[in-house]
Design a protein around this nucleic acid. Structure first.
Lengths: 190, 190
DNA sequence: ATTATCTATAGATCTATAGATAATGC
DNA sequence: ATTATCTATAGATCTATAGATAATGC
């Protein structure tokens, strides 16, 4: 039953990866430790050899989810040097992203639940969120660094809010309207 | 044990009211039927005489929460005829609202969970959400009705996103920065 | 007589732990 | 010998229901 150190490290990684996916799909309360371990191909009881608690996993999985978003959007920006902001916005506000919270933005997927989590979870997320804001600040218009940061915060809030509202709405046409409208709105602000 | 028809109607109302408060405070999964009945001063088992399921209560309580927001913001607008939009925005993005999700905007409080609820819940909310968008559309700038609606959607997304992000962040200074920045951003868009 | 509420419980979860098992790595 | 994983379970939830109780309202 015992596995090698390397194998164990891979298991740990797979647990975090599965959790990052499932938490975004079903929420922190909607996924049990057992669900995560099942998807990782391990049994429930083995979890506590890797982590102290579900809370620790929530922190690590949330951090990884945002970290991956930072990497993803950094690549998107690199790939579109002439109009990076609109490329990022179109990707974020796509119907593809709307349909796949499990691989998308953590804040849109579980933002209102994250707000109620203990600070260990919030702090873990914050570390990567800061990088995300810096990334956006580099591609928004603004004369000073401070102005760019302010614009980045406003754009990010608009994106997160739009995706959450689009997902809350039962009518697909209204969802599309929300995403398209906010996309145009961000474009109008440059 | 039996109570009068009037009393029963009041009990039903109180259950919905307590649920609307508690769901916004702790999320749909964070509050049990028993919690709601306890706050309403009734016992757990009595719940099923009033409602078919927790899902039905989620729909009714969510609808009531948004309905109350519509009433509240209608009054705020009435009370500030010269600059209604900024008055609404300042109220929405206040630190008071940040600290009290249980009486505030449903979308900011449980938006990412609402996105995963069955359509019965989403539809109940949608009815009132449409009124909220119409309310905002009346006070935003725009030459045509369509332009006002577009601006209302963008403003609403920005407000909801900003409040969720402010509540996710573990540093109170950063929370303040987010709320203040988005407040200025909405003002700049008129 | 009817029925709103209460008590009690079934059945299905959940997190976390204890002890057994079996493969790694000294 | 050590230890990563598994099996089994404790203890605490959760939604929903069945049957008892007692007050309303015909």
């Amino acid at each position: 039953m015992k596995v090698s150190k390397l194998q164990m490290a891979e298991h740990r990684d797979q647990i975090i990866e599965s959790a990052a996916r499932q938490f975004r799909e079903s929420g922190f309360d909607g996924i049990s430790v057992s669900d995560v371990m099942k998807e990782a191909g391990l049994t429930h009881g083995g979890f506590y050899g890797h982590f102290d608690s579900k809370e620790e996993l929530m922190a690590l999985a949330s951090q990884r989810a945002v970290h991956k978003s930072v990497s993803k959007y950094a690549k998107i920006i690199e790939g579109a040097p002439q109009k990076p902001l609109m490329t990022l916005v179109e990707s974020y506000l796509s119907s593809r992203h709307q349909a796949h919270p499990e691989t998308g933005c953590l804040f849109a997927a579980v933002g209102s639940e994250l707000a109620r989590q203990p600070s260990s979870v919030k702090h873990a997320v914050m570390q990567e969120e800061a990088k995300l804001l810096e990334l956006i600040a580099r591609i928004v218009p603004g004369r000073t660094k401070a102005a760019k940061r302010r614009r980045a915060i406003a754009v990010f809030a608009e994106l997160v809010g739009a995706m959450i509202l689009a997902r809350c709405v039962p009518d697909p046409e209204l969802s599309k309207e929300i995403l398209a409208t906010v996309s145009d709105s961000v474009a109008a602000g440059q």
